[in-house]
Design a protein around this nucleic acid. Structure first.
Lengths: 344, 344
DNA sequence: AATGGCATCCAAAGCGCTTTCAAATATGTA
DNA sequence: TACATATTTGAAAGCGCTTTGGATGCCATT
């Protein structure tokens, strides 16, 4: 069933039917009713490709999913997508996901943009000096970046959380509790949030004249396993750190196992603060020692970005170009005063 | 830059350029070279919407993502998507994801299909007597189902793992180890895999004249938290089970915490076998007590489904309509002989 | 020189929709 | 009644591509 058939069935022109469906005012209410009724009966749906071709709008937002054989998928990706989806479903938008090799992201993004399949782009996993930024700017298609690109002029539309502030605050809390030996379990080096979190820690420490030793920093994929490995390494250090900052609750999972295996008590021998993206599968409050966290909902960020993107496409009023969300610092049982005992 | 401009630039007709690009034989090799060169220089990309309209093929596979405010996102979804993506990227296919309220899935799927935006559909989270199946059959669009629908005639294209066999085998192993009191931590009741896994357990038990008590079964979302709760319940039972079957390693995580908190030892007081979807973030072999699992890679399943779907769209040879993958039973330290001591 | 075959190329139609411009009808005003 | 003005509808062009059904020119054959 297409427009032509539908209009013939109704004895109307395609024009009128199209107008009736798209809410134009110049069509008689009675006719509109008739059309709507017929749509219901026949189950007619406009062909999106044709609409896209005719209007230039497709009701879809595009994103590139980094993937390759052997490339680790990321819990955070799914959670973020859920947020985007939650908002998109309200506006009858959908996503076009282009899977791409992580090395090919710039090109993939460009292909997606000029394919004519999407109205707007969403970009994540930002890096320092991210090469996608100049490309996006040259594209004349709306986009919003999740995160920021360290080192680049912040003149692009983004939504980010205050990673530096979060880890600064967390570090300060641990300092106030008397800790002096810190370690950081971070995400992959090149990612923007990792850079900022690290800076947050460093600057809080600097205020007390402390530094973050190289061997007290780990950069790795944010998995359970890597958390275990990193923590094991920290615990074997001659000057074992007592305060750990961790970029993900998933990673914290493994880290805590390492603590337990070493016979140490979380919140007493070792204090740990992790960043919590509010993943439904992992609630820091129900850890056996509830986790102190810096919190910010990834899903909410996804929903907000979708809102901005869709709003822009629909020309629904101006949106702030840059948003920086504060995180919450939630104190639970995994942090406590620095142990006094076997000091060096 | 569109076809018309490109062809004018080359002094050729749109026809010829189009043919050159799509590998038709009736174009002079020299001309083809010239066209390809021009494409490289201008960065021309065909408009996908127009291609779609003209050919009826869009190079995309559609799927519905269940989502709603408050709806829990699912790690497994992301992992599966990664598998689909891994294969799709090879063929320059992309996904169109339509987010939809879980209550609206049938309608959403239909909308997606007749939107003319996709060439094939992928469907997951199958339930018993799934209402989407009759709809899909009436659609004349290729599709592949991940999982099966219990109770429905198995005459639709699917890829499933042998859930019943997996849990049957796992249960048998525990029986052989002398266990007699079993519990099952399963996914949501209505889902097909949950039904089959349960059946697997029941039939293995039946062979020894045992039954699975109602209070030894939990159906819940497969999260860490639910795992904890379910296990706590099991441990308070007067006849505490010693053998636990668990539908997910994520859930096992919480379950194990409950075991530890109760002061019990995994692999000695309590034996546990979990199903492992091979999530990169959670490796059963690196649990503090390595987990015995039934294993089948979700990601591999995604890739295979993408392969079948894309192959069908491209008319590349016949694919098996139904595939049932065996799972592996991998014995690690979380299973051991049934404790002899305080028997009832 | 006339014919047929082959290799290349092109004009134009068509995919299903939106939208411009114009026509037809209905309504109001003098 | 005659005219201007809304209101409602339609014909047709166009979005950017593919593809059908010729053209055109060139060569080998008769």
């Amino acid at each position: 069933m297409n427009l032509k058939q539908l209009s013939e069935l109704l004895g109307l022109s395609q024009t009128t039917v199209s107008r009736a469906l798209n809410g134009y005012p110049e069509v008689n209410e009675a006719t509109r009713e008739r059309v709507l009724q017929a749509v219901k009966e026949t189950g007619y749906r406009p062909n999106k490709a044709a609409q896209r071709l005719a209007t230039g709008k497709a009701g879809s937002i595009g994103l590139v999913m980094p993937t390759a054989p052997g490339h680790q998928s990321d819990v955070h990706f799914g959670e973020f997508l859920a947020g985007l989806g939650e908002e998109a479903v309200r506006h009858d938008f959908h996503f076009v996901i282009m899977p791409a090799d992580p090395d090919d992201e710039v090109a993939a993004l460009r292909r997606l943009a000029i394919s004519g399949n999407v109205d707007a782009l969403f970009v994540a996993y930002m890096r320092g000096h991210d090469p996608r930024l100049p490309m996006l700017k040259s594209l004349s298609m709306p986009y919003v970046v999740h995160g920021r690109s360290f080192g680049a002029e912040p003149d692009y539309p983004y939504l980010d959380i205050d990673n530096e502030g979060a880890f600064y605050d967390a570090t300060r809390l641990l300092l106030q509790l008397g800790h002096t030996r810190f370690a950081l379990m971070n995400g992959p080096t090149h990612l923007d949030f990792a850079i900022r979190r690290r800076n947050g820690v460093i600057s809080a420490l600097a205020e007390r004249g402390l530094t973050l030793e190289e061997d007290c920093v780990s950069h790795a994929l944010m998995t359970d396993e890597q958390g275990l490995l990193a923590m094991e390494r920290f615990l074997q250090l001659p000057q074992r750190p007592t305060a750990i900052l961790c970029s993900s609750t998933v990673m914290a999972l493994g880290a805590i196992r390492a603590v337990n295996q070493a016979g140490l008590r979380l919140g007493e021998d070792i204090s740990l603060i992790a960043h919590d993206d509010v993943l439904p599968l992992l609630k820091p409050e129900s850890f056996s020692v509830p986790l102190t966290t810096t919190r910010s909902s990834l899903r909410a960020a996804g929903a907000r970005i979708a809102q901005r993107l869709i709003g822009t496409v629909k020309q629904a009023g101006p949106f702030p170009e840059q948003e920086l969300w504060k995180t919450e610092l939630i104190v639970r049982a995994s942090t406590g005063p620095a142990p006094q005992s076997h000091e060096a």
